[in-house]
Amino acid sequence: MAQAEEVKHDQALPPYPEKATLEGKNKFLGFWFFLGGETVLFASLFGTYLGLRNGVADGPTSQELFHLDLVFYMTMILLTSSLTSVFAIINMKKGNYKGLLGWMWATVALGVAFLSFEIYEFWDYTVNYGLGFSTSAFASSFYTLVGTHGAHVLFGVLWISTLLIRYAKTGLTLTNAPKFYTASLYWHFIDVVWVFIFTVVYLMGV
């Protein structure tokens, strides 16, 4: 608890710095619960999408829209970013703070790349295929599901960047270790959600 302020980065940290304090433990457990809630959130969005994906009205169908090559690149990027965040946490456990920061920056960069592809994808559908948000129930539910995921990626990018800038010089402490750890948990979660989107939306939609 209060000891956190006294711990300097050059002192030896306990083996699990992210769970060493009660605050860290609370944050860790609370975050898992939060992800449980997020799971229901995405499950509800998936359910809505599955209920509406054939409701194309006069708009384009998913078969006309989806190009698996683009989505495959996006999937690869996001999977890789999950891997880089794992490297970051491995470095944290090893006490290599520079390595933690470096791999986390790589994760952020991949997240930005993913978002750029997604923006391009949405732009392509809207402009070249005439799939606006209001075109059909399919369009609305597609943009809502995939867009909500995209918003989560964006939030993750902003969150991790904030942590990286704020703690650029402090070294690893009992305060920031849980923060990096939960951020990486979050990142894995949005990665897993994407795997489901890839399967349910894209693979089942072509």
Partner: peptide, 21 residues
């Protein structure tokens, strides 16, 4: 969220004529 998008931003999840349910 869906109801908000439907009412404020023209989404069509609940508009039967647009394929909604």
């Amino acid at each position: 969220l869906l109801l908000m998008f439907e009412r404020l931003f023209g989404a069509t999840y609940f508009a039967v004529e647009m394929g909604g349910n």
